Simulated assay, not measured.
Amino acid sequence: MARVCFTVQVDPARLAEYRQRHDPVWPEMLREIEASGRRNYSLFLRDDGLLIGYYETDSDEASAAYLARSEVAARWEASMQEFFVGLDRRADEAATVVPEVFNLKQQLGAL
């Protein structure tokens, strides 16, 4: 299982509107995320606009490929593009992956 953490920058002047767009996310987009194989998906947003995302999946490559082919995901990403700073492509493709350096369960299992 892959555990993926990523960051992207949201325009700090548009945080309230960004939060509103996620409450709720389109039902068809929720189903596409699930169908892509992503689980335990969460987004966290700091007051300075730093967005931190986390999800688990069996294959991040397969999940990303599924969403890249999805018409629903393309519409969602296009509708959200205006909120991100300094991106020249879809946020889900341009996000910076953060390497994992510690995992409690993994280290406890090694004891």
Rank of each mutant, 00 (worst) to 15 (best):
M1N: 03
M1Q: 04
M1R: 04
A2E: 11
R3V: 10
R3W: 00
C5Q: 10
C5W: 13
C5R: 13
T7H: 05
V8W: 03
V10N: 07
A13W: 01
R14P: 04
R14N: 08
R14L: 12
A16C: 02
A16W: 01
A16G: 10
E17N: 08
Y18I: 11
R19D: 09
Q20Y: 04
Q20N: 09
R21T: 05
R21C: 04
H22K: 01
D23Y: 00
D23A: 06
D23S: 02
W26R: 08
W26Y: 02
W26A: 06
P27Y: 04
P27V: 01
E28S: 07
M29N: 04
M29Y: 06
R31H: 08
R31D: 13
E32H: 07
E32D: 05
I33F: 07
E34S: 13
A35I: 11
A35F: 10
A35Y: 09
S36F: 03
G37K: 12
G37E: 07
G37C: 06
R38G: 05
R38L: 06
R38S: 10
R39I: 08
R39L: 11
N40F: 09
Y41N: 01
Y41E: 02
Y41P: 00
L43H: 05
L43D: 03
F44I: 04
L45I: 09
D47R: 13
G49T: 13
G49M: 08
G49E: 11
L50S: 12
L51F: 09
G53R: 02
Y54G: 06
Y54D: 03
Y54L: 07
Y55G: 06
Y55F: 09
E56A: 07
D58V: 02
D58L: 04
D60I: 00
D60P: 00
A62W: 00
A62M: 00
S63N: 05
S63R: 01
A64S: 01
A64H: 03
A65V: 02
Y66R: 05
A68H: 04
R69N: 09
R69K: 12
S70V: 02
S70M: 01
E71I: 00
E71T: 01
V72G: 05
A74Q: 06
R75M: 04
R75Y: 01
R75F: 00
W76C: 08
E77C: 01
A78G: 07
S79F: 06
M80A: 11
E82P: 09
E82T: 14
E82Q: 15
F83W: 11
F84Y: 15
G86R: 07
L87R: 14
D88R: 14
R90Y: 11
A91S: 14
D92W: 03
A94Y: 10
A94S: 15
A94K: 10
V97L: 14
V97Y: 15
V98S: 15
V101W: 14
V101E: 15
F102W: 14
K105H: 13
K105P: 09
K105R: 14
Q106L: 14
Q107D: 14
Q107K: 13
L111C: 13
